[in-house]
Design a protein around this nucleic acid. Structure first.
Lengths: 198, 198
DNA sequence: GTCTATAGCCTGATAGAC
DNA sequence: GTCTATCAGGCTATAGAC
């Protein structure tokens, strides 16, 4: 396997935070070039066009993000503990990381078919079987597919809300902490809301 | 007395689906003008610039979206039924409606402070007190603020996942239906995952 | 209020010297 | 591989006729 030139990787790593913060259309080739320390024309020695640069940057960002999950869930332990470890894994891998989270968020909104495929192949597909095994132990008749989306959504939305959270009633600074959010989600998943039967 | 919509309103209503589908930068003033049936220059008789047009369009889209919630939650009934009605309300108001949902999704990603304020004042602030009353009946020690975000996230993420859902293992067409999603969420909230204690 | 015409700027991308 | 120079096209916004 021929190793890619160092500049190639530098470009990807400079482009990712820009795409995360401003979106595809919000970032000019000149912006990426400036962040790398070269001119825009030089970018075209490494990528045929802006779209490919963007695609390769996403591929680079999402690669190997979930490869350790199997090991994390495989350990012999109670279902409850494995569920907790999954939530924690997702918080640390996709919630806490502002760049990865923003990229995912923007990709979901744009919904480009080719990039949807990228997302599924690198992130959701490789984890689904392990997680579905866990979900099947749910005894409330809950469907594994829907439960999979629910757990991920529960994690991601708390972080997507971060720019808004301070403006919502009942906000306390500690609710921005990942640990606090993680514990809340695990508790909610395990027990539900447990409403008074009044 | 049906009155012919003023051009001002026609512009807002033509702009909203465009902003929802392509984002702020993805929509040109010419595109909006074409959708209305006038030229781009004529837009400037109604709005000082593109940014104001966008802001007023969002304000128009989000106005009065939640005004009926109080009545829906005020009826004397069990907590469980009131919770179900809240989930159903949010699904119908913000999940099912592709335009509103996409606008919200893009606003959260862009996180512009002025527009965050708009979101909170028109949507989250007016519903929080009613919903928090409901959340306080949760007996798992769950914090009302975090629970509020959890319930909303649970609803919204299922719909945000729609462009991806078909590509995720375990997908069945019926899982795209709002009723199916609503029932899943209510069941999850009420009982939790109920894992085997193995 | 709407039009045509256009200013002024920014954009992705290319050509060719080094 | 990187540079400078540049192009063609798209963008927001304005000017002035009607």
């Amino acid at each position: 396997m021929p190793r890619q030139p160092k500049t190639y990787i530098k470009i990807l790593e400079a482009a990712l935070p820009l795409f995360a913060a401003y979106g595809y259309k919000g970032v000019a080739m000149r912006d990426i070039a400036r962040a790398v320390g070269i001119t825009a024309a030089a970018l075209y020695n490494h990528f045929p066009n802006k779209e490919q640069l963007h695609y390769k940057a996403l591929e680079y960002a999402f690669a190997q993000k979930v490869e350790h999950l199997s090991a994390i869930l495989a350990e012999t332990d109670t279902s409850q503990d494995r569920l907790s470890r999954f939530v924690l894994f997702w918080v640390e891998s996709f919630g806490d990381n502002v760049i990865i989270r923003s990229l995912l968020q923007r990709e979901m909104a744009d919904a480009d078919p080719a990039r949807m495929k990228l997302l599924v192949e690198h992130i959701y597909q490789p984890v689904f079987d392990d997680v579905a095994d866990l979900m099947k132990e749910a005894s409330g008749g809950l469907n594994p597919h829907l439960l999979f989306v629910s757990v991920i959504g529960l994690v991601m939305y708390h972080f997507e809300m971060s720019p808004l959270r301070k403006l919502i009633p009942g906000y306390l600074p500690e609710q921005d902490s990942s640990d606090h959010i993680t514990q809340h989600i695990i508790s909610l998943l395990k027990n539900g809301i447990l409403l008074d039967k009044s």
